[in-house]
């Protein structure tokens, strides 16, 4: 119990432990008209509720699971605030960390930790906004997590090595997040002009920064996965993505003796 409380405190304090108010994919306060802001809240709500239900069920099964969820939540918070200069574009942007989180704790729980991270960023770091929280949860938490998770599962089933599956998961989840942000902005702001034209224009504006940054996120995802997998294999096994290590026959015999 004490350990759990410590992790929650850790998650809360890590919310402040960042050097600047970097902003990138987050849609800022006041940008979305009220009806669009409300729509994205309505779309995001069932996913958050689904994630909270999953968290309760999995925590009842294995209380230590909450520790990993807390740690991954901290990582998502830090990664999604980390400004990285992209020399090819002359701008700064940030990775999202939701692809990595989706591999480790599953997409539904990633929605929960992303929502908490985005809420704390909006409240304390002027990063994103309270009125645009639904839209930001949809792009980063829901689309980023589910896309990354799907890519990881499919590529593993196709027989790709773990590191390359994790790399592709990071890349695609990052690009999908920014594509969704473009969609949200275009649908809310296109006015009388063409939606498709504005969507393409916003997407194209993101590309010089996000193409290299997505590749960077893929490298981060593969690296973190390679670090965690040998130490906490049960975390990924419980998602059914990786099969448990078979017990070696000689070990079995030793156990019997």
């Amino acid at each position: 119990m004490k350990q759990k409380q410590l992790v929650y405190i850790y998650l809360l304090f890590m919310a402040f432990a960042l050097p600047s108010t970097a902003q990138a994919m987050h849609i800022s306060e006041g940008v979305l008209p009220p009806q669009w802001a409300a729509l994205w809240f309505i779309v995001a709500f069932p996913f958050v509720a689904w994630g909270l239900r999953d968290l309760r069920i999995k925590s009842q099964r294995d209380p230590a699971f909450k520790l990993m969820v807390g740690l991954v939540g901290s990582a998502v918070f830090v990664i999604s605030c980390m400004p990285i200069p992209v020399p090819t574009a002359g701008t700064c942007s940030h990775p999202c960390g939701t692809g990595m989180a989706a591999i480790l704790i599953g997409p539904t729980l990633t929605v929960v930790v992303s929502s908490i991270a985005l809420l704390l960023q909006a409240l304390f770091l002027s990063h994103g906004g309270l009125t645009t929280l639904g839209g930001n949860i949809l792009s980063m938490g829901i689309v980023g997590a589910f896309t990354g998770w799907a890519v990881f599962r499919i590529t593993r089933k196709l027989g790709l090595p773990v590191w390359s599956a994790a790399f592709l998961c990071g890349v695609v989840s990052d690009w999908a997040t920014y594509a969704t942000t473009s969609f949200e902005l275009a649908s809310a702001l296109h006015g009388t002009s063409s939606f498709l034209k504005m969507f393409a224009a916003i997407g194209a504006s993101f590309m010089p920064t996000q193409i290299p940054l997505g590749i960077f996120e893929g490298v981060i995802t593969a690296g973190i996965y390679q670090f965690i997998m040998p130490r906490r294999p049960e975390v990924v096994e419980c998602l059914g993505v990786e099969k448990p290590q078979p017990v070696i026959e000689s070990n079995k015999a030793e156990a019997v003796v």
């Binding site: 902003q23 990138a24 849609i27 701008t91 700064c92 902005l185 504006s205 993101f206």
Partner: peptide, 9 residues
Amino acid sequence: WEGVDDTVV
């Protein structure tokens, strides 16, 4: 080195 929220959003 502005964030893409300024340059794009």
